[in-house]
Design a binder for these strands. Structure first.
Lengths: 136, 136
DNA sequence: AAATATCTTGCAACACAGTTGCAAAAAAGG
DNA sequence: CCTTTTTTGCAACTGTGTTGCAAGATATTT
């Protein structure tokens, strides 16, 4: 796939098979992935450390972003074009307690919150847990 | 302090010095604490493992709840009375990027979000990152 | 197409976070 | 104060994430 190379080049990264494979895994599975998920999928081909470093690089370059929940750290593709300079992530993540999948709800915004005086917000991150349509 | 014993008994827990100390640390420092924070404060008196187990017990009994941010797991007191059966945590956490402290914004509610069809929400968790009044 | 500079990978080793089993010690209740 | 039940400390272990370094791969220049 040439689109993978394009995406990597667009973020000023050399194309390597590991980066292509990690990126393509994020694209094919659409939900948020942990390092462990990726190691499970690609661990026979690449070293643990390389996958960690790939994730770190992708984070820095704005290809993926962190997704938090109560049982660990995951990563998901940035939908709106992020770059090294600017990340825009005021979106909502939904974690299903049945199947355990976490997904970004792309088209929703976090409603405005009236903060007490003196608080300067920069970033909003809403995690909703419950049951997803597939498990409902 | 007898209030500590009362709180523990109210959640069906035996009073031990470790539990009293952990609870009183949560009460005196008002912000969210990590295991490491508690180990730093009490580690000379109690074993690492004991602190882990105390946190786990407090979680189960509804004395504290998890607080997530992009660099790890923290815990904070439940303000509204939680029990083993029911936790109610639709509140907002604010993490200051300057001082690193995370606090619960007690009196705020998360505004309602219109979810797509099929999503059954059970729990809302909003993390706002920015600058807090002290660092502003 | 080969040579160079630069970046990426794998390996080993390490630091830190969290868990489990078990025997000894402490709490609650009679 | 004796018994039951829970909690603690210790040792050992698993899992997660990082760092240094030499070897390999990528991009670039000629």
């Amino acid at each position: 796939m040439d689109q993978l190379r394009e995406t990597l080049k667009g973020h000023h990264l050399r194309t390597t098979t590991c980066r292509e494979d990690v990126l393509s895994t994020f694209i094919s599975k659409k939900n948020a992935l942990s390092h462990g998920d990726l190691e499970g999928a690609l661990g026979e081909n690449y070293d643990r450390v390389t996958i960690y470093r790939t994730l770190k690089t992708f984070l820095e370059k704005g290809i993926i972003h962190k997704v938090l929940d109560d049982e660990g750290l995951r990563y998901a593709l940035c939908s709106h074009n992020c770059s090294e300079e600017q990340h825009q992530h005021d979106h909502i993540h939904f974690k299903c307690n049945e199947c355990g999948e976490t997904n970004c709800l792309e088209n929703l915004h976090i409603p405005p919150v009236q903060l007490p005086l003196g608080y300067q917000p920069q970033n909003f991150n809403l995690l909703i847990q419950g049951t997803c349509p597939k498990c409902n």
